[in-house]
Amino acid sequence: MSLQRLNEVRRSFLADLEAAGSDAEALEAVRVRYAGRRSGLLQELTAALRELPNGEKRDYGRALNELKKLVDSQLREAKRRTAAASAAGSRPMVDVTLPGRRPPRGAEHPVHLVRRRIETIFLRMGYSVEDGPEIEDDWHNFEALNLPPDHPARDDQDTFYLPGGSLLRTHTSPVQARVMEEYEPPIRIVVPGRVYRRDSDLRHSPMFHQLEGLVVDEGITFGHLKATLETFLKELFHGVEVRFRPSYFPFTEPSAEVDITCIFCGGKGCGVCSRSGWIEILGSGMVDPRVFEKLGVDAERYTGFAFGLGLDRVAMLLFGIPDLRLMFSGDQRVARQFA
């Protein structure tokens, strides 16, 4: 009978508490009603203890204590909540529009960004990326590539010489020669790197970057060269048209200059493309059999193609950098734009 009463009080307390929510006045009323010193229900229930027969006192006492604890803790929790809710109105607010504390952000130089983009395209096509010395000998830089001493085409590649007859490579092609000396076909490589020519003006820097490619296997055709370079250029410069013009390089035959439709005017003609609508982007050709013979590759069995482009120029075109001198100035505001 009395334990039942305890349960009734417990239920009504929880119901009243919920009804009061976080309203401070209503909560105070609940407190007075249940835990008030004078006429609270808990006082009343405590008084009732004395009236009970001795055999029931122990259980009732224990249940009453639990009820008291519950009321106490619940009221306290409700009060904390209420206080927190009322305090919220005066708390300082974060200005979420302030700049964040960014971790520092580095940036790669545009010429290396472009290099790695191009490497990735070729790696996806199964090409390997090769490396070679910047200090070269005459054989690998010139002679093996069908540029004997006194060849007029050497005029186009003004060379820096070092003591002892070595030189700074004028193109990345000597790595082709080294690869052909070292590996048996099939060969499928690209070679990026720094190169040097004794030439300096608005459009030429004595140091610049090239990327060279070479494919050698049985049955490689001029059509393969065209398709490979078209695929590559359309991947790098989305949506351009590609055209091939006959040209001359001592180490390839036939040779082709490759143009893309001007990425600034879409081929309509502008200042950048000298109104032609085309931009010269790379040189290429079928490997001259004389080169194969010099490097010990069976020219009867194998054919191949090679190509080369200026990475600095491609970076300038791709990212719209107007002046070659910006590339090697060391101005951190150049690279920072590519973070």
């Binding site: 990326v129 099939p186 499928r188 393969h224 065209k226």
Partner: peptide
């Protein structure tokens, strides 16, 4: 000359 991609062994490219 029709552009046709060469068929080459499907070995993965390496960075050397």
């Amino acid at each position: 000359v029709p552009a046709r991609l060469p068929v080459l062994p499907a070995v993965p490219g390496q960075r050397r």
